[in-house]
Design a protein around this nucleic acid. Sequence first.
RNA 1: UGACCCAUGGUGUAACGGUAGCACAAGUGAUUUUGGUUCACUCGGCCCAGGUUCGAAUCCUGGUGGGUCAACCA
Length: 567
Amino acid sequence: MEETKIPGDDKPTRSLNFIEEIIEEDIRNGINEGRVHTRFPPEPNGYLHIGHAKSICLNFGLGKKYGGKTNLRFDDTNPVKEDVEYVDSIMEDVKWLGFDWEDRLFYASDYFEQLYEYARILISKGKAYVCDMTADEIGETRGTPTRPGTESIFRSRLVEENLDIFARMRAGEFPDGSKVLRAKIDMASPNMHMRDPVLYRILHTTHHRTGDRWCIYPMYDFAHGQSDSIERITHSICTLEFEVHRPLYDWFIREIGIYAPRQIEFARLNVTYTVMSKRKLLELVRDGNVNGWDDPRMPTICGLRRRGFTPESIRTFADTIGVAKRDNVIDVSLLEFCIREDLNRRANRLMAVLNPVKLILDNYPADLVEEMEAVNNPEDDSKGKRMMPFSKTLYIEREDFMEDPPNKFFRLAPGREVRLKAAYIICCESVVKDPGTGEITEIHCTYDPQTKSGMPESNRKVKGTLHWVSEKHAVSAEVRLYDRLFIKENPDETVEGKTYKDFLNPDSLKVVTAMIEPSVNSAREAGKFQFERNGYFSVDKDSTPQHLVFNRVVPLKDSWAKAEKVK
RNA sequence: UGACCCAUGGUGUAACGGUAGCACAAGUGAUUUUGGUUCACUCGGCCCAGGUUCGAAUCCUGGUGGGUCAACCA
């Protein structure tokens, strides 16, 4: 069949975001000979989270889109906070997300020698000086946003003396905090970052890569732009809070006289009910509020991975949220939509009863076992079918039965007919209760032998379809139900002296023992499933053949809850 | 009471001086051996006031609101 072409309809439908517009304009203007080179520059002081995923997708995406390159660079200029553990996890997470920096793995610490030379250039030009003031004194003399600062008495130090002291700082002659190298710019600038910012501080700390070779370390502002320049990055994309740093970024490049990349800022990602601060996430891990960085409740890449998110779904999410300069809070339901959409296509269905109650078919032969055929994925025929053992005694979901059902309830109730998915239509005859607690212990039904799935009679309309497992064939498994919300609302630490931890959801994790159809044993490697009518689940890394463990990735869209709300 | 940035449905994001569109969310209906999926439909928006223009979400001015900046963190 041939599709009719609508004139003008073949133009790219996706419009450009503002960064792409800048890049395309640069290309049109012949800047950098049309070259596009980006970088993802994390500091290895924590694990990557969903917010970084936006930046990763953006930077690598742009590199790919414009036939350019993207570097991975560790911004490791503060040995106090950084560690190889984080370096390793970051590389793993970027790879898992599906991006490849090829042979372009760099570290700001690779450039320490070059950066030191750049600093000497500034000193020689009279644009930098060694200052002996304490951190407090520097802070006090910096002024405030509305009041100019005052110049350091060391500002007039001679070039030769500066060069000499700077060399001795490097040689380790001075203790931590005793001296810093500062740029000589303008203590009255309305931009605080231009008020003689610190370039180098003394830190007698072992660096995770350079060891004890250095005891002076460059500050972010002095390292980042120059690192971009060394790598000949064309577009240095960062988040909005660095906007006020841009004049300084450009100042260093200009004064040193080196290749000039262009810094572009975008709004960082925020997600409702989600903590997105490295510092706070670190606290949660350190204080034991979660079981590590990869706890499935964490918004870290490894947490999402362990929970069962796919890299595709995260990339789709990043594409969908777009890029702009206004502050934003993305509704977590969009993330959930992306993973549901992906998993609906790829996850095989499985009968799993999370809260079992016994159902006995009074008219079914006691020793008979039938094999029922069930499709693995109604969205994808190629996923094939499987057989499920069916017998007299079954488990169904306790919530699928009500003695005294409300109007909109169309599952099992006394005297009502319901379909057992892929099996028979049954009718509820009676219930047995525990005389003590009054809890229902057995539901007795009769089945209609003419309604086995596939028979003509099975086409009969019944209101509800239940999932089930055979009592003697079912496999038990530990199922971890992670709630939709880990944080009850967006935490605001300024409220009534509360900390964000007061907003942690105490019910964020529930553990139950579920009964699952036996085919789970052979299909476990598949990794991800939809538990019929409950949600998408992934096999946890704690899982063993003897002890199955599942995480709930995300619940199914719950229309039953909506129906309940209406009434 | 400084500098810089931002302002489009509930949430995001388009429109580049010429019909305000898309996605999520929400609602209605149809299909369905998952109250899932799918399909159709509905709801709902240009911060305010001036100005330029035949015509402004778009350009200009002024308000208003929000954000960022005062680590020897990044």
